[in-house]
């Protein structure tokens, strides 16, 4: 029991420590990257339990801000190979368990 308790505690610690957004890969310019990252964070925090809504929100906002045909994938585990317009891709982790991929391709 103690072991599991410790594990739980560790997990909590991990969750607490790793709530920050962590960008894995991006080729966006600085300004756009920051904006997109913040948008992803707000969306994921607002729809913590509904990845679909979060993705929808991100996509719609990105379409408005940076022109149409954005694609967003949010999930805890997935693989992908996408074709994107250069300087329009962001792949980040958030909240310790979520992966968010945002790209543009028309």
């Amino acid at each position: 029991m103690a072991g599991t308790g410790e594990a739980k505690k560790e997990e909590a610690d991990y969750k607490r420590l790793n709530s920050f957004p962590l960008i894995r890969h991006t080729d966006m310019p600085e300004e756009m990257r920051v904006e997109t990252m913040e948008l992803c964070v707000t969306a994921c925090e607002r729809f913590a339990t509904n990845n679909e809504s979060a993705a929808k929100m991100i996509k719609e906002s990105m379409d408005k801000k940076f022109g149409s045909s954005w694609h967003v994938v949010i999930g805890e585990g997935f693989g992908f190979e996408v074709t994107h317009e250069v300087k329009n891709l962001l792949y980040m982790f958030f909240g310790g368990s979520l992966a968010v991929c945002v790209w543009k391709c028309s």
Binding site: R24, H25, G77, G79, V82, C101, W103, C105
Partner: peptide, 10 residues
């Protein structure tokens, strides 16, 4: 355009 691929899991 370019192609990017990755796998996200826990």
């Amino acid at each position: 355009r370019s192609i990017f691929s990755a796998t996200a899991n826990q």
